[in-house]
């Protein structure tokens, strides 16, 4: 992938030049410049390679039941992918549970294709510089099909309301050896960890700017990262054990974030540090 290598080399060159001089916000400015370049040439986004893989996986007949995912109902009817991500997480009657994109994909792989759940979630996240996992590729594909749409989350079913309330409670829940809650770092405007800017995620205008960026291509990792992975990473930094993939906690937090970001543009897969 010479194009991708060139982009990364160019960015690193930019960072190498900027960091020692170290005007504080220059790293972020340089990333912004990189994002602008990608906007000018959207096809240079390496995240799109994962979306392509995801589309192929979506259509491929696979699993013990020999089915494709084209019969998967992401909330707007079987096989309807366009715009589905914008309305997730939502309550699914067949599962009797609120599911986000990733847990819905697992559900479809399990029920339609006959894969064992334990096998699907055994390795949900890729490591640095690896090709994305099947779940990452599929999630990137489905999210891309809502690129340009705005978050329009549901809040009708009692379980949707409960997920939102639990997500809000979790956002402010302090725990662990360092007493951290999500709100410790994401509860105020204009704060940073080291040089990394932190969005105030309870503030709609700041949530709208970032929540729709995920799944995102992470330049430092050379791979895509999903919302589930992003939240698990926060808990890892909070010195807590590894949270289950597609757990009640990660789905409820996603519900909270998407509701804060209601009306915000979906730009996934975007480019992050």
């Amino acid at each position: 992938m010479p194009a991708r290598t060139t982009i990364v080399a160019f960015l690193l060159l930019g960072l190498a030049f900027v960091v020692p001089v170290a005007a504080i916000d220059d790293t972020e400015k340089e990333l912004d410049r990189y994002r602008q370049m990608l906007k000018a040439d959207p096809w240079s986004n390496p995240g799109l390679l994962e979306a392509d893989r995801g589309e192929a996986l979506w259509k491929q007949v696979r699993g013990p039941k020999g089915a494709s995912l084209e019969g998967c109902d992401l909330g707007k009817g079987p096989g309807k992918v366009e715009g589905a991500f914008a309305e997730l997480p939502r309550y699914f009657k067949d599962a009797d549970r609120v599911l986000d994109l990733e847990s819905r994909l697992v559900w479809c792989m399990e029920t339609l294709q006959g894969f064992a759940r334990a096998e699907i979630v055994k390795r949900p996240y890729s490591k640095a510089n690896q090709t994305g996992t099947e779940l990452e590729a599929l999630a990137t594909y489905v999210a891309l099909k809502s690129n340009g749409a705005k978050f329009a989350p549901h809040l009708e079913h009692a379980k949707e309301k409960e997920a939102l309330a639990v997500g809000e409670g979790l956002f402010f829940r302090r725990q662990g050896p360092l007493d951290f809650a999500c709100s410790t770092c994401h509860g105020d405007t204009g704060k940073r960890i080291r040089l990394q800017a932190l969005p105030y995620l309870s503030k709609p205008e700041e949530a709208r700017a970032v929540v729709g960026e995920w799944p995102a291509y992470r330049v430092s990792q050379g791979t895509v990262m999903t919302t589930q992975h992003r939240i698990a990473d926060c808990y890892w930094q909070m010195r807590l054990p590894l949270v289950d993939y597609g757990s009640d906690v990660t789905i409820a937090l996603t519900m909270y974030l998407v509701h804060q970001a209601e009306g915000g543009d979906i730009t996934a897969p975007s480019i992050k540090r």
Binding site: V166, L170, R174, P241, L242, V243, D248
Partner: peptide, 23 residues
């Protein structure tokens, strides 16, 4: 329900680590 969600969402860690989730 927040505590219930927490209890249900970390199923692979050993007890020593799970204690970190208790406030």
């Amino acid at each position: 329900s927040v505590d219930a969600a927490v209890k249900a969402s970390w199923t692979t860690a050993d007890p020593e680590w799970l204690a970190r989730l208790e406030q």
